[in-house]
Structures are given as structure tokens and as C-alpha cells.
Nucleic acid binder design. Sequence first.
DNA 1: ATATATAGTTTACACTGTAAACAGTGTAAA
DNA 2: TTTACACTGTTTACAGTGTAAACTATATAT
Lengths: 231, 231
Amino acid sequence: MTMARRERLRLETIEEIKDTAWKQIGEQGAASLSLRAIARQMGMTAPGLYRYYKDRDALVTALLMDAFSSFTTSLEAGRDSCALDDHAGRFRGMCRAYFQWAMENPQRYVLLFGTPVQGYLFAEEVGPVAQRSFLVLQGVIGEAFVAGKIKGEAAALKLPTSLKVQYEALRKMGMPYTPLVTHLALSTWNAIHGLTSLFLYGYSQSFLGSQVDRFVESEIERLTMFLGLKE
Amino acid sequence: MTMARRERLRLETIEEIKDTAWKQIGEQGAASLSLRAIARQMGMTAPGLYRYYKDRDALVTALLMDAFSSFTTSLEAGRDSCALDDHAGRFRGMCRAYFQWAMENPQRYVLLFGTPVQGYLFAEEVGPVAQRSFLVLQGVIGEAFVAGKIKGEAAALKLPTSLKVQYEALRKMGMPYTPLVTHLALSTWNAIHGLTSLFLYGYSQSFLGSQVDRFVESEIERLTMFLGLKE
DNA sequence: ATATATAGTTTACACTGTAAACAGTGTAAA
DNA sequence: TTTACACTGTTTACAGTGTAAACTATATAT
């Protein structure tokens, strides 16, 4: 049995709301997202939206989760642009996808990794979705590690025991791969995020002008070398 | 001749406005900064504030510049906790100061490096003030470089010519130190910012729990080694 | 055909930033 | 010392926001 008509319309409306919200975010930035404006553009009144989302935060949460989904998909696509045994290529591909997605969806990226919109933490249902994108990164490094391709400085890294304990605890809770892999993944994540966000906020650009891409490429290369995936 | 009485009172009021604003930002976050609330707390009416700041953005800009100032001062203090010839120590000290300042002033940090509050770019008068903090970082690396203390991987880094050209253009415009130094400084900045902001937004914490400090310390150490300042 | 769940509107309230007109006060020039 | 003016603030007003409550229309289920 296919979906009931009611249900279908409801889902369509939800999609329309989100689409309209994204359009506004794309045009005016995430900070000034307005329920009333969304309703107006959809040809309905503002309180009507409350049939679909409890409040403004709930809508933002939904947008957040969709954005994470799209982000993760892009990372995976970047990764899969290279063969399974081309660990360096997969790593580079993923890094490039990361930066490029952020370039193409600046407001979305800001929504994910920028200032928490109003209060502090976002809703807990976001956690798992957010972790999925991290797991892609960790997976790339992890697969390289099990293939024995992590070498040099990164492989020789000596973790403080307290950190190791923490990573092992994570592992017991289902986190895949060894402590070293988790550590390297976190470290790499920090690096790429720093690179991306300082650029998005216009800081790097004032130094690098049109050469941002080169800089990003050279940083990706540095990370690849640090992990020992190349040379 | 000392300042006229009028002028003095005016400056005091400006200070009170900013203090009140910071208090609110500290309590409720930067996003929900309200002129009316500030005025209320100061025992005056909202439109009165417009005698001191053109609009909300102008106030935010002023806050931003103060925050940058405080941030830069902290970086300098961290740096100067070690002797002039202890380049590794000065670098570590500055990095720690960076992270610690962000920990102690999360909202302030978010204001500086987080989502641009409403539109996109902030006022141009902020630029120079922002650069000052970067120059501290660059200075530490630059001084180590002229002392011949940058070694290993970092020293051997091969810059793409187009990037080099860009850095040299910056230098002609007054940026101190060589292209390599500028590049390393930018790269390091990215790393520390990534580290800091992912933590502030709660991402790292979900992985690292109470071990964040260890992680940060280990990352600082990694950067120190990358620059060749140690070993 | 009737009962009920859902979708939406109307109205209302408390909040925001900010423009315009006005009043009181300190300062400076005649 | 009186007159002019600049400065600081208030009052009032308007357009915008999120959202709660009451109500209405409509689609579905019985």
C-alpha cells in the first residue's frame, strides 16, 4: 500500500518549507531566517508553520540534519573518486570535496560548523548525523592504516596515555579503528575545518586573494604527507 | 589641558554600554544581543543609545575591535612568557594563550571568528585590528626563522610559485618576513583556529570529553615539531 | 452521515531595531 | 549675562519578529 494522500501532502509541505528556508538562507544568511517570511513566500500565514515544526529551532534542526546529510554524501563521493587501494587519492578526494562543498554552500557550512544559532548546543538528534560525516574521514584514514599505508611522523606519533584511554573508551562504545587512527582523524578534521572556516569568514582571503585554491591544495598535500600516504 | 567634562562623560557612557553589552553576550550569547535590553539595564531608553552608536552593527563593530585588542594582548603575553631566544617556548606560549583565551571568552571568540553576525563581512575598520593578532603569530615564526630555528619539513616546504608571488606582493605592501614565513603562519593559524573552534562548538568535546586539554597540548607539540622548533 | 483529526486563519501579545519629533541641559559666544 | 546652539536623552510611532490561543474549514475514518 502506498502512502496515504494526507501523509503525502504533508511531506510535500515539509519539503516546501525547507526549500523556501534554504532559499532564504542562501540569499540573506542563516542568521536572519524568518518564519514569517517563509510563510509569506509560501502563501500562507506564519502560525500555520507550527503544524509542521514546533518552533523556529525545530526547523533549524531539520535543516541542519539535511545539510549534514548532503555534506556527508559529498565527502563520500570525493573519497570514492579514487580506487579502494589508492589511499592517498581517496584522502585527497575527500579533503577537496570537503572544501568544495563549503565553497558551494557557505551558509550551509556556517550552519553546521559556525556559531550555534542562538543558544549553545544544538538538539541531540543532530549528534549521530554529525558523527557520520566524521566517520567518513576517519574511515579513509582507518582503511589506509589497516593497509599499512600510514607511515612516518603520523605512524610514529606517541599518544599521551590519558588520550589513549579516552580513545579506547570510545572504541568500546562502537567507534571503529584504533586510538591512533581516531587521533589522526580528529587532528586532520581540525586542520581542514580551520582551513575552510577561516576562508569562509574572509580572513584567509585578505591574505591570499585569488590564490586560495593553491593554498588549500598545498595544505591538503601537506596533510597527505604528514599521514605518510605519499612518499 | 585635560579632557573636557562633556567628553569624559561621553566616554564613560560608551564604556558602560560596551560593558553592559559584554555582560549580556556572556550570559546569552552574541546572537541575541539587544539594544533595548542594554538600555533597560542602564536605566535609559533604547533610542538614547543611538547618540553613541549609529546602529546595532556599529556597536557590534566596536565590541569586535575591543575583543581583538584583548585577544592580541593575550597572545603577546603568552609569547613573552619565554625568553627571546626560546623560540619553541614562545611559540607554545602563544598557542596556549590562543586556546586559553578562547576557552575563557567563548562568546568573544565566536564573535571574532564565528559566523559573521548578520550579513557577511564586517566593517573595514576591523581589518587592521584583526591583522595585528595575526602578526603576533607570524612574528613568532618569523623571529624563529631569522634565527635559523625553522628546520625539517617546514623549512624544506616547496611553495607553488603562484602562492609565492602572492606572498611577495603582500610583502611589498608592508607584510614582514619572507613568503615561507607567511605561509607557515597562515597554515599554523588555520590549525589552531580549527582546533579551537571545533572545540568551542562542542564537536571535539563529544569525542574527547575531559581530555581536550591533552589533545590540544599534543597538537601544539605537533605543530612545534612540524616547524622544527624542537628536536 | 456523523465524528474526529488535521490544516489553516485570525487575533493577540511581547519582543526587536530604529526613525522623527521634542525637551532639557551644558557650553560658548554676544 | 544673556542669547544661541550643540548635546543627551525621552516620547511616540512603525514595521518587523516568534509564538500562543481560539476558531474554522476540510479531509479522513467509522
